[in-house]
């Protein structure tokens, strides 16, 4: 299976075009961390923190956010209609070309 390309815009506005494998069940948070993008992933991808909050900027069809994810987005800030938690978005072929922007970090 071939890699897909995802475009991740960091908090400085710089776009990173990243090749992500689709056969490892990787999520977007893990992809960001693997490429040393500033995503903390505090809870380890369990939708229990909001440190991988991002905005989906392309019109890819995504799996719907679970109740857990929505609950966690309640604790994030500057949440928009296109807000998601990166850890709940899994790399698969349909997501080739996905563009996301990292949300501002809260401290």
């Amino acid at each position: 299976m071939s890699d897909i390309t995802v475009h991740i815009i960091d908090r400085e506005g710089v776009q990173h075009d990243i090749a992500a494998p689709t056969d490892m069940n990787l999520n977007l948070m893990e992809v960001c961390k693997a490429h040393e993008l500033p995503v903390k992933g505090t809870c380890g991808g369990m939708a229990m923190c909001a440190s991988c909050h991002c905005y989906i900027e392309s019109d890819h069809e995504l799996n719907e956010a679970s109740e857990d994810e929505e609950d966690m987005l309640d604790q994030a800030f500057f949440v928009e209609d296109n807000s998601r938690l990166g850890c709940q978005i899994f790399m698969k072929e349909e997501l080739d070309g996905l563009t996301v922007r990292l949300a501002e970090e809260s401290e």
């Binding site: 903390k40 604790q75 800030f77 500057f78 970090e105 809260s106 401290e107």
Partner: peptide, 11 residues
């Protein structure tokens, strides 16, 4: 671990 648990502050 990741540090001291403190209230999440809006940016």
């Amino acid at each position: 671990g990741l540090g001291v648990f403190t209230p999440r502050k809006p940016p």
